[in-house]
Design a protein around this nucleic acid. Structure first.
Lengths: 152, 152
DNA sequence: TTGCGGTTTAGATTCATTCTAACTCATTAA
DNA sequence: TTAATGAGTTAGAATGAATCTAAACCGCAA
């Protein structure tokens, strides 16, 4: 698939700048390109994938910078890390609470919406004294129909 | 803590032998020692931790063998891998369905029982066409009281 | 213009894990 | 008894994602 990496639109750039600002960080050209890559194709790319896509519009970009940018985004709460077993970390700009479904065959990662009731029932299984900030839920399996609505 | 690594009791050795046999694998002295280490202290050790504990009773044991043994156990369904972020894989002989709670401060991993209703409600959030074999749930947070009942 | 701090960069380093090839050892075949 | 087979074990090399390091860069304030 040929895909032009356009820069961020006005709205997204403002969001990015604001979130970075709150975390005491600046908006740089590199950060803008890396963020644009994440928004352009929401397929949970690895750092290498982000790197390769970003270099299409910014050839001088270095891998270390992509690591730095993504770490900064995570620190500012703009982006979530997704880990499966010990494979390369993937990145996802979907901030709504959601689980991940990993297709055993294709390796593709799909977002699964998490209704509040389910979150609540999960929190309820913690014994007293256990205080959880983050809950990670991941499914591993197969997708029979490739529902395009959920294949991001 | 000083801890003697005893070998397996009759009952556990039989279980191990049977499970290995079903997977077309043999019971070897190394596998017995590694399995005994997992049963002796259910604290989700890393490979290195297993290695160090196992060498107390079998000094010639090699790290590669520990990797091999643990992989064999996982293949035979005797043991589960536990991953958190991209830290070293940990191993756990608790086969009942359970989630993991990771203490942000100590790094300790606690098993959290998973009632069938919760499993069901989780399965129900998958859109049609998504068929999941494995569900991994992990909490990250703090434990206020160090409840000894759950600190394995 | 100079200095400063944060950012970017290339390359080196780390470290868990996997791979490789030699070796051991029990069992089977000759 | 000996040879052959094959799974398991071993030490060390190789891999690869991620981190570290030190130099270069850049916008900005003094």
């Amino acid at each position: 698939m040929i895909r032009m990496i356009q820069s961020l639109n006005e709205h997204n750039r403002e969001d990015l700048q604001e979130a970075l600002g709150k975390g005491g960080q600046k908006l740089t050209p590199q950060r803008e390109v890396v963020f644009a890559v994440l928004l352009a194709q929401r397929d949970h790319p690895t750092v290498d994938e982000v790197f390769n896509r970003a270099r299409e519009s910014m050839p001088g970009l270095s891998l270390a910078t992509v690591y730095n940018c993504l770490e900064t985004f995570v620190g500012c709460g703009l982006v979530r890390q997704v880990n499966h077993e010990r494979e390369s970390t993937r990145y996802c700009p979907n901030l709504a609470p959601h689980a991940h479904f990993r297709d055993k065959e294709t390796g593709q990662v799909h977002d699964i919406e998490l209704p509040p009731e389910v979150m609540k029932s999960l929190r309820s299984i913690l014994p007293p004294g256990f205080d959880s900030e983050v809950i990670e839920i991941s499914f591993l399996g197969r997708t029979k129909a490739n529902d395009p609505l959920h294949s991001n």
